[in-house]
């Protein structure tokens, strides 16, 4: 347990200090949301209707982009070798790294959601609904995207290839995330159904993600 705590501490410190990626994801999220009115026009009613979708898309892209370096950085400086040679099961190591990533890259996105909701003319209830669905859904994005991050190490290739591979896997999260938000804002469906499914997706990804990522990392041969 102390081994995992040490890993968690290290990853969070690295992310928060100079050269870490925690802030960039947040800035990217902000940029995407600011960009939308320029494409759609400053129609407040329209923005309000599309608001949850815009926030979810932005959060999804931001978390995808920051995931790119999850294992690649460790692979480049050689510490991945030492993580693999550890007595901690690689699946747990992967899961811990994903948790650290979510804490440093996912949580900030949720924190700035209210401010961005304001820009999109969302009222308090709507913003709260989006933030709540993001809390439930972004872990699923991190844990699915982790598979892509591990593939990036196996393939020595990141960036667009990963986006192409990971995005289709994230479609269910997007569907139920946006659906739950809109259900809370406009109805007529109950908020509970899509939200429960969103939570279920997150839970399932907690199992699939670490195992698939660890399998990828074991297959890397350099």
């Amino acid at each position: 347990m102390s081994a995992l705590a040490a890993l968690l501490r290290r990853d969070i410190r690295v992310a928060l200090r100079v050269g870490g990626g925690a802030l960039i994801g947040m800035l990217f999220f902000l940029t995407v949301v600011v960009l939308m009115p320029f494409a759609l026009g400053p129609d407040l009613a329209l923005l309000r209707r599309l608001g949850p979708a815009i926030l979810w898309l932005g959060a999804m892209l931001a978390s995808l982009l920051t995931l790119d370096r999850l294992f690649l950085a460790d692979s480049e400086d050689g510490s991945l070798d030492l993580l693999v040679m550890s007595r901690t099961p690689l699946e747990l190591t992967c899961a811990t790294k994903a948790v650290a990533h979510w804490l440093t890259a996912g949580v900030p996105l949720i924190v700035i959601t209210p401010a961005l909701g304001l820009l999109l003319n969302l009222d308090l209830l709507a913003t709260a609904a989006v933030a709540l669905t993001l809390i439930a859904g972004t872990p699923a994005l991190t844990f699915t995207g982790m598979i892509g991050a591990a593939l990036a190490v196996t393939l020595h290739r990141g960036g667009l290839l990963l986006a192409v591979i990971v995005v289709p896997l994230s479609i269910p999260v997007l569907i139920f995330g946006v659906a739950a938000s809109t259900a809370a804002i406009t109805g007529p469906l109950s908020f509970g159904t899509p939200f429960s499914i969103l939570c279920a997706l997150s839970l399932a990804s907690f199992v699939i993600g670490p195992f698939a990522a660890a399998a990828c990392l074991r297959q890397r041969m350099d």
Binding site: I147, P168, L169, I171, A212, C216, Q219
Partner: peptide, 22 residues
């Protein structure tokens, strides 16, 4: 890498199908 992705896809395809239906 492709094998792992294929298997993850095989698990995910029914989930995607279900969500798209919904």
């Amino acid at each position: 890498a492709a094998a792992i992705l294929t298997l993850v896809g095989a698990i995910n395809l029914p989930i995607i199908k279900f969500s798209v239906d919904w």
